[in-house]
Amino acid sequence: MVERRPFLTFLSHAVLIMGILIVSLPVWLALVASTHGETAFTGGTIPMLPGGEGWRNYSTMLGKGISTSGAPPLAAMMLNSLIMALGIAFGKIAISILSAFAIVYFRFPLRQLAFWTIFITLMLPVEVRILPTFKVVADLGLLNSYAGLTIPLIASATATFLFRQVFMTIPNELMEAARMDGAGPWRFFKDILVPLSRTNMAALFVILFIYGWNQYIWPLLITTDARFYTIVAAIKRMADVADALPQWNFVMAAVILAMVPPVVVVIGMQRLFVKGLIETEK
């Protein structure tokens, strides 16, 4: 800001506050809806202020689920989501850092080909090739399993690129010094590369955790057994029933529970999140 313009400053604050209010509105109403009893939704419009049934709604959803909607207890589904999100995040980081290490620190025949093969995954989001991928997973017998939920999603070009970028900024002298001291590739990787890319790993972890937790179409298709339902994919099943039966309080409790973990991760690790977001898109 180069000069004082009280009106513009005031306007800026007003715009930001308006923006925050509009952005928060749907979540506020969902939160309110999740604290009322079923009868609150038969009267025409939804309530604007919280009610007193919150504890009952949340504990019902977490512990028992709603049997009429075919929803198992949410606690179990949240655990599945957590397993899926962590599996994808750690899996992607592990396989990407290894392949970036291979690509940057070794010269071998077909190196370019390997690089481009990885690059191609960047171009093929799962939604685009959903049917053949589903068929492969079905043929491998991975339907209704944690392996089926995670492994097809852990190949990622972006993470490999990010680590490649990080390794390229590490000065050559470090590598030469390590070799002079007799360190082999594994030692160099473990004692130098991994510690130096720790922040990048953490930033990437935030992004990938959100990506994994929020998966929708993939878990929806490959899980038919309620034991493997993830919370985000299951919400739509509940919401469809709620449109017929007034169970909005339960559905909205599920919505809030489904968004709390990733939102907490983003707010709690905001700096890492912004770093991860801006780096992975470059």
Binding site: S99, F101, T117, I118, L124, R129, V136, I151, A155, P185
Partner: peptide, 24 residues
């Protein structure tokens, strides 16, 4: 060694990306 390091990523890419895309 580089192929060992690349193996997991290339395997996943081949099985879940290239093969289905080729089939499509």
């Amino acid at each position: 060694l580089p192929w060992v390091l690349l193996a997991p990523q290339l395997a996943v890419t081949a099985v879940f990306f290239l093969w289905p895309a080729g089939q499509a």
